[in-house]
Design a protein around this nucleic acid. Structure first.
Lengths: 153, 153
DNA sequence: ACAAATTGCGTGTATATACACCATCTTTTA
DNA sequence: TAAAAGATGGTGTATATACACGCAATTTGT
């Protein structure tokens, strides 16, 4: 095991697993958003555009399920993308539903964002090292599934 | 060719390191907040109260540095705690500063929250396993420091 | 066919997050 | 000592997050 040292952070604040994850989440979000800044997209927005690009078209609930985010959160997250004309929403056949799709502008924005995103991804890989990054990804996936654990609800 | 829908979605959505972290962060936050619900505190709020309890008193910037959160975010996060009478803010000697301190009610709330927090911590440890949890904590600490990496800015 | 259950969605409300900008107060410097 | 520089904090604005609630449309059960 490497030294890893105490760094700047006080020992007492590293005990809560949840806050540990949230601090890391804030840090990496700032890093990605900063890298993506020239594209005018946040990492959340780019993620949405890319998922939409894969699905071609989707209802709100379908997209929410795909990106694993709360449906009402997604609803709000789409607002800036609608305003910028990156996505288009229309009524579905089942008129309870909405069909969401990328516009041409949205596709272009996604491509611009993607190129910057690749830089961020590469930097992270370089910084973390491949082994640690793989391990981290694995562990995060497990954390995601905590809700299904047999100790809860 | 069949569709293999279950293959396309997860693979594609698990590629962004940032979104991976954010999904995990959302999941564990919901888990902690749910566990803490009877105390009336969110995990963020409990964290603030506990750090304040350690510091006895602090200025806003000091507390922000300790919990490693943006100063202006902290400012807003304190609002519910002030409203509930859990913390008390007054002008410092240097009248640019504010001195924050726990109230008696705040101490009680922190104690109530703590007990539930311990349950959440224990559950996570059980669920993740000790080795993986230690490894995760280590990796998250490294992620936190990405901003200092020599490939940025 | 009609009532009941279910599904899909939006909004009200509240917290969490942080950047840009500004006001104020203190310390340093010319 | 007056001006400049620095420190401290608040607010405007915007995004991200999700729970509770309710409305409208569809599907199901009798």
């Amino acid at each position: 095991m490497e030294k890893q040292a105490s760094e700047v952070a006080p020992k007492q604040s590293n005990r809560c697993n949840c806050m540990n994850l949230r601090r890391a989440s804030r840090a990496i979000t700032q890093f990605y958003d900063d890298t993506l800044k020239p594209s005018g997209l946040t990492v959340t927005q780019l993620s949405l555009l890319r998922h939409l690009g894969m699905l071609k078209t989707a209802t709100i609930s379908e997209l929410a399920k795909m990106v694993q985010i709360d449906r009402t959160t997604l609803n709000r997250n789409m607002k800036p993308l609608i305003r910028e004309g990156f996505i288009d929403i229309r009524r579905g056949r089942d008129s309870r539903t909405r069909q969401i799709a990328l516009t041409a502008q949205g596709k272009n924005a996604a491509i611009r964002g993607w190129k910057l995103w690749e830089v961020a991804q590469k930097t992270i890989k370089e910084y973390m090292g491949n082994n640690d990054l793989v391990k981290l990804t694995q562990l995060l996936l497990k954390v995601e599934n905590i809700a299904h654990y047999n100790g809860k609800n």
